[in-house]
């Protein structure tokens, strides 16, 4: 249960980046977001989900561009229903698309971004030079946008998002379309940025490795709801007592006895032999699993710790919920 914001201390409040309460949004009969309740602290957050999961809709709402159909929320302490322009002045948004202005030079593009954020023209121009140097485009600042490579264009868009020194960066697929070297370079730049400025960041991407590398927290969206959210470390730590177990004789009552002993079967499958992804009871060691198998008259052929990374967690969460939904529909 989340503590209501009005019962939190000033210090605690300053740590809250966004707080959404039963936020829903529908487009006609399509429900894009369903009663999303979410509180995230300042820091680096990955926003992941399949296509159609509701990421874009959530981004639009966070940017103050789209009002929710129902529910309420704050981001950076601003009411998302009432403070669109004010809110966008505190957020730096880097779009996924090329979003270039033809015939403009790099420095003009970034300065234009500053102008549009409400900075005085001179300040925007001066700051454009600074951020272009910061993102490593100092030498290329007077080149026209159509002469920039994909990697440099991503850096330029990052500079345009940084120009007004925002409190929160909202990056939409920042490494999309980059070659491996370009991707690594962009990730290093973002890592440095986070380390040096301590800015909060919401990274919206399909590349879960990028999220693992850059973010401390993750929000997994699935079919308009929050499938899971929280610190990545905690989520992956939860996998510590999980094992992938293979055994002979699929007809034995090994699994049913395991469940009766307090274990949990997370996933069950069959390749050439019986296999399951299981969570052991808290007091158990792996040795006890072998003992149970022996009691059931079967042989464990393979046992390995479930080293679930974010990608597997994501697959499990989205697969489980899809199955659940299908069952409900049936």
């Amino acid at each position: 249960m989340l503590t209501p914001l009005n019962q939190m201390s000033r210090k605690e409040l300053s740590l809250v980046l966004l707080d959404l309460q039963k936020l829903s949004r529908h487009f006609g009969s399509v429900q894009a977001l369903r009663e999303v309740t979410l509180r995230l602290d300042t820091g680096t957050i990955g926003l992941v989900g399949n296509n159609g999961a509701g990421k874009s809709t959530l981004l639009k709402i966070l940017l103050g561009l789209l009002p929710p159909s129902s529910g309420s929320g704050t981001i950076l302490g601003c009411d998302i229903r009432q403070t669109g322009l004010q809110l966008r002045g505190r957020i730096g948004y880097m779009p996924e698309a090329a979003a270039t202005v033809p015939l403009l030079k790099g420095v003009e593009y970034v300065a234009l971004s500053g102008d549009l954020y409400g900075m005085p023209f001179r300040d925007a121009r001066r700051r454009a030079h600074e951020v272009l140097n910061y993102v490593g485009l100092g030498e290329l600042r007077y080149r026209r946008l159509d002469e920039y490579s994909a990697g440099n264009l991503q850096r330029l868009k990052l500079a345009a998002a940084l120009v007004h020194d925002p409190e929160l960066l909202l990056l939409d697929e920042p490494t999309n379309g980059l070659d491996p070297a370009g991707r690594m370079s962009m990730l290093r730049l973002l890592e440095d940025l986070i380390a040096e400025t301590g800015k909060s960041l919401i990274l919206c991407t399909h590349l879960l490795k990028d999220v693992e590398r850059l973010c401390k927290q993750v929000v997994v969206l699935h079919q308009g709801t929050i499938a899971k959210s929280g610190p990545i470390e905690e989520m992956t730590r939860a996998a510590e007592n999980r094992y992938e177990v293979h055994w002979r004789d699929a007809n034995s009552d090994f699994l049913s006895r395991f469940c009766r002993s307090g274990g949990t079967v997370l996933h069950q499958g069959e390749v050439s032999e019986a296999m399951a992804l299981v969570a052991l009871p808290e007091t158990w060691q792996a040795r006890q699993l072998f003992e149970l198998a022996a009691q059931c008259g079967t042989v464990v052929t393979r046992l390995r710790e479930d080293d679930e990374d974010l990608e597997r967690l994501f697959m499990r969460l989205t697969a489980k919920q899809t199955t659940g939904t299908q069952e409900l529909t049936a």
Partner: peptide, 22 residues
């Protein structure tokens, strides 16, 4: 096309509207 069409074609509209303008 240069002044307006490209904003839609190259999706520059998000660049403008995500700034502090409506």
């Amino acid at each position: 096309s240069l002044l307006v069409g490209s904003d839609f074609r190259q999706r520059t509209l998000p660049f403008y509207l995500s700034r502090r303008i409506g």
